[in-house]
Every structure is written in C-alpha cells, then in structure tokens.
C-alpha cells in the first residue's frame, strides 16, 4: 500500500502528468461521447510528429528525457483544438509547435505556447486548418467538468491566477457589452462563456507556465491583457477563436514583463520531489 502511495506521490510531483491525464480524458470525451470524427490515424500522426520532433531535440540538445511529457501536452492540445483538411497540415502544426520551443527563445524561456503557435501557423500558412469553437457544445455540466478539472491542474502548477484573471476579465468585458450595453439576457452571456473551447483554453493553454510572466502581478496584468485583446477581436473583427489569436499576439510581451518584474522561474518538477534531480526541465 505504501509503495502505491509513494508511486502515486511521485506521479503527482510533476504537474505535467495531470495535464496529460485530463487532456486525454477530454479527448476521449470528444471522441466517445460527442461523436467527433474519430480518425485515429490523424491523432497518431499528431502525436508521432510531436514526439518525434521532441526526441530529435532531446538528442541534439541533450535535454532530460522527461521532456517528452511537454510534447505530449502539446500534441493533446493540438488534437483537442485544431482541425485540418489534409494530414500534412497536421504535421506542419505539430512540427512548428515543438520546434518553436527551441528556435524562438528569449532569456532561457521559449516565447510562444507551442500548441497555440502551431494552430495559428497552420491556419495562416496553409488555409487548410481551422478551430471549431462550437464542437464542445455548452452543457453546464461540461463547464463544471472542465472548470473543476482544469482548476485542479492549475492548482497543482500554482498558476490558477492566470485562469482566474483571464476568465474574470473576459467575462466582465463580455458582461458589460452583452448584458449592460446591448441588453441581451444573461443567458446569452452565459452561453458565450460556457463554450468548452474557451474553458479549455483558459485552463490548459494560457496557463502554460513556461510562456507566462514569472512575477505574479505581472502575470495577472498580462492575462487580463490577453482577455481584453480576445474580447476586442471577437467584437470588432468577428473572430471566433479570438483567445487563441490574442495569446499569440501577446506572448512576445512576456519577456518584457519578466524584465521589469522579477519572479521565481517555474519548474515542472517540484523542488521538494524526493527522488528526482532538482533541475528544471523547461522544454
């Protein structure tokens, strides 16, 4: 029994395990319950490419092998959000996502959230990729699930502040426009906020500790800025996957925030982990 618990604790020491488990659960939910087109070959392609490219860089840069988990998270994120016409588009998205971590770096951190950049580049470069914001439906149940499970993940990682700041700011702006200004009922507002894609973004994408400011205050300000840009994009330009575009636009500001507000650099594996080496694996 004790061995089990120790093994379990070891498992929980790395926040990425949680993220992998939960995102995999959502993927199963999408395929098994929501009836997405379960083209397993396509998912295999995304995972194979992401892990393959990561393995290449692990070799080349001599990184700890455990960084395959980050590639796994990226592959899951892509599978959950990105739709593509041809398989090459998926390969492109997964490759650019992982490679961006090694080529677009500043001050020891990569600049863009890999999954986020992969989606945007695939959409811009090929025109063959898209995001289906409506694919999750808007069941209140799902809201609770994604919210609760997501909170759990970010609580582990210690970056629930990002989710709260982003969602809070986005909800407030939408409330001001939809309910206070336009005069729609609150159900219209809630319907907007209960989009599964928005919550997935809130809890699993924007919270990536490697591409967000280190200092807590800076992080909150930055998250609210992402919310404001997303709000403006969806309102003024009718962009539906607005948070994804907003995050790409504001990610380059993270180094700037880090420069002015110093904070403790995030480490995937908690420093008090009993049996693991104490280095950070930032990739």
């Amino acid at each position: 029994m004790r061995t089990f618990r120790l093994a379990g604790r070891h498992l929980l020491q790395d926040a990425r395990h949680f993220q992998i488990l939960f995102q995999a659960a959502f993927l199963c939910y999408g395929i098994g319950w929501l009836g997405w087109d379960a083209e397993l070959g396509r998912y295999a392609l995304v995972f194979g490419t992401a892990l393959g490219v990561q393995a290449f860089f692990i070799r080349w840069k001599g990184l700890p092998a455990s960084s395959w988990k980050s590639a796994m998270i990226t592959a899951l994120g892509l599978s959950l959000l990105l739709k593509a016409g041809g398989p090459l588009t998926l390969v492109l998205a997964a490759t650019t996502a992982i490679a961006s971590k090694f080529f677009i770096r500043f001050n020891g951190k990569h600049v863009f959230n890999p999954g986020n950049l992969g989606i945007v580049l695939a959409a811009l470069l090929t025109g063959d990729a898209w995001v289906s914001p409506g694919q999750w439906g808007s069941g209140a149940l799902l809201v609770f699930l994604v919210g609760a499970a997501g909170s759990m993940v970010v609580l582990r990682v210690g970056r629930i502040d990002i989710s709260v700041a982003f969602l809070g700011a986005f909800a407030a702006l939408e409330f001001a426009r939809t309910v206070l200004y336009l005069g729609w009922g609150t159900d219209v507002w809630l319907h907007k906020l209960s989009s599964g894609s928005l919550l997935l973004f809130t809890f699993f994408m924007i919270t990536d500790p490697m591409t967000t400011p280190d200092h807590r205050g800076a992080r909150i300000a930055w998250s609210m800025a992402v919310a404001a840009v997303a709000f403006l994009l969806s309102w003024k330009l009718q962009v539906y996957a607005a948070p994804i575009w907003a995050l790409v636009l504001l990610s380059p500001l993270t180094p700037l925030f880090d420069r002015f507000w110093k904070g403790e650099r995030f480490q995937w594996i908690r420093p008090d982990a009993p049996r693991l080496p104490r280095h950070a694996t930032s990739n």
Partner: peptide, 20 residues
C-alpha cells in the same frame, strides 16, 4: 450525450488523485 458517465469517470479519477 452520455455526459454523466464521463462525469462519474472523472470524479473517480479525481478521488484517486486526491488519495495519492
């Protein structure tokens, strides 16, 4: 769409995680 089954699964997973 069978969301309750999914909820039950996830709750179970959360409990296991909490235990550990």
């Amino acid at each position: 769409p069978g969301a309750w089954a999914f909820l039950a699964l996830l709750t179970g997973a959360l409990l296991v995680a909490w235990y550990f």
